[in-house]
Design a protein around this nucleic acid. Structure first.
Length: 239
DNA sequence: TCATTAAATTGTT
DNA sequence: AACAATTTAATGA
């Protein structure tokens, strides 16, 4: 796929409403926040656009204001392996930004999205000076560690309903993705890409989860009714 | 604002 | 993969 529009992407200052959807801003002092807001840039990514790709030097610390991204890497065969989706409120790449390395993942928009970026120099200045910012980043790293451990378990599951349930629980993580709320905007096709199942099977799993009153299937999205059940429920093997 | 039409998404085979 | 049914978005009077 050759859809690297990221370099030519138009960037603009964020609107007030977009700033509201950036969770860590409210943890800063007013002086720190003013500095961050001045340096923040947002851009629109169309479906298929690469926000950043493996090997490129880190220029921004990115976050999703609106839409849906996926994080993936290429293995030697040229096959790409999807790690996770990134819904609104999610910020990523702090590990590589910390070390000023190059990106280790491709980040691609699954649908038209609004992506915010904090320049890496500003990122480091906040790390040097702001307690609130450090607390956010530390919390973020810790929470994501939990997610990756859970993701390994998900990969080893053979029950599709269970895989879908756990994957949804991950996307509804309120710490990592505070912009999601009760309704996750995601199509069944997009979810199928992320989970690695066919859309048909995902549809069947969603109907099953709805019958168990864990979620409600809506047009273009899903409403979560029982997050704990998604995270910890066990399904009967017999079928 | 409303009615019509096109596009997107879902449910099913 | 294909198809019909349903929902939303876009268009224009």
């Amino acid at each position: 796929m050759n859809t690297d529009h990221s370099l030519h992407q138009r960037r603009r200052p964020p609107t007030a409403q977009e700033l509201d959807n950036i969770p860590w801003l409210r943890l800063l002092t007013s002086a720190e926040r003013a500095r961050a807001v001045a340096d923040l840039r947002v851009g629109d990514a169309l479906a298929g656009d690469l926000v950043c790709r493996i090997g490129r030097p880190v220029t921004y610390w990115f976050g999703v204001v609106e839409g849906l991204l996926k994080m993936s890497s290429d293995n030697i065969d040229g096959q790409s392996m999807t790690f996770t989706g990134v819904p609104p409120g999610g910020w990523f790449g702090e590990g590589t930004a910390l070390k000023r390395e190059s990106y280790r993942y491709n980040i691609q928009a699954l649908r038209k999205s609004v992506v915010a970026g904090l320049p890496i120099d500003t990122f480091h200045q906040l790390l040097d000076r702001s307690i609130g910012f450090n607390r956010f980043v530390m919390n973020q790293l810790n929470e994501r560690l939990g997610q990756f451990i859970a993701a390994r378990e998900i990969d080893r599951m053979n029950n599709p309903d269970l895989r879908v349930a756990r994957s949804l629980a991950a996307l509804f993580n309120p710490v990592l993705y505070p912009g999601v709320g009760d309704v996750l905007r995601i199509t069944q096709q997009e979810l199928a890409y992320l989970v690695g199942l066919s859309r048909q099977r995902v549809n069947e799993a969603l109907c099953s989860l709805q019958a168990k009153e864990m979620i409600r299937v809506e047009y273009g999205g899903l409403r979560v009714l029982d997050p704990d059940a998604l995270r910890s429920s066990v399904f009967d093997k017999a079928k």
